[in-house]
């Protein structure tokens, strides 16, 4: 499903985020990207979300070279993608329901369909009862679960998460990771970047270790 083919990303100033990376992820896989900060995890995700473009090499998604997509095709590309962020990026002046419905509003769905899907997504993360709360009224773990609901509400084939447990204590982190695993069980391909090696060891599954912008090892 995803293939990084000798991908290099050189930032303005000469620093290389990733260097000649080769990586393949099959549909339905859950892959952890680990490594120290600065190892290139975020850059890899940015290349997938088209927040950055590769300097060299190809980023293929379902056989399509997304690195060469024209700017006007970026919105559609991103609509097919679920994204979870470390700081969850919820809008503080909107309710949980409104936050989760944003991708569907952008996609142009009808009101009733939006309400149905948002409630289903909130149910999946166990926050159906908080739909009219503001994010500030929620705990950090709950906020991140809202962020995940927003990422899956559009039913993406691929979900990418950048340090989704970065701000959480170990118990909550495990809870969030289990949630990802459960969502992966219904067929969503997942690429999760985290520096929490202990947690990943505990969870098992495929792990890609990055170091200095290159793949330094893999564990299964």
């Amino acid at each position: 499903m995803i293939r990084f083919d000798n991908v290099t990303k050189r930032y303005a100033g000469g620093h290389e985020g990733v260097s000649e990376i080769c990586l393949e992820v099959d549909a339905g896989e859950l892959v952890f990207l680990t490594g120290h900060s600065g190892a290139g995890k975020t850059t890899l995700l940015k290349l997938l979300a088209l927040i950055e473009r590769p300097t060299r090499g190809q980023v293929l998604l379902n056989g399509r070279n997304v690195g060469r997509l024209p700017a006007r095709a970026i919105p559609e590309h991103r609509r097919g993608l679920g994204m979870v962020f470390q700081d969850h990026k919820l809008l503080p002046d909107r309710t949980v329901f409104e936050n989760v419905s944003l991708p569907l509003i952008i996609a142009g769905l009808g009101r009733r369909e939006i309400a149905r899907r948002v409630r289903a997504a909130l149910d999946q993360v166990g926050l159906l009862s908080r739909e009219s709360s503001r994010p500030d009224a929620l705990s950090t773990g709950e906020q991140q679960r809202v962020g995940i609901a927003r990422a899956v509400v559009g039913r993406p084939r691929l979900l990418i998460a950048d340090e989704p447990t970065g701000n959480l204590d170990p118990d909550l982190s495990l809870e969030i990771m289990m949630l990802f695993r459960r969502l992966n069980g219904v067929g969503v391909t997942m690429l999760i970047a985290t520096h929490d090696l202990a947690l990943v060891q505990e969870l098992g599954g495929r792990r890609v270790i990055l170091e200095g912008g290159r793949v330094s090892g893999e564990q299964d």
Partner: peptide, 16 residues
Amino acid sequence: RAEIEVAKLLGATDAF
């Protein structure tokens, strides 16, 4: 600004 950034991340077109 924050709202615009999030909307763009979620795939909002310029027109939107």
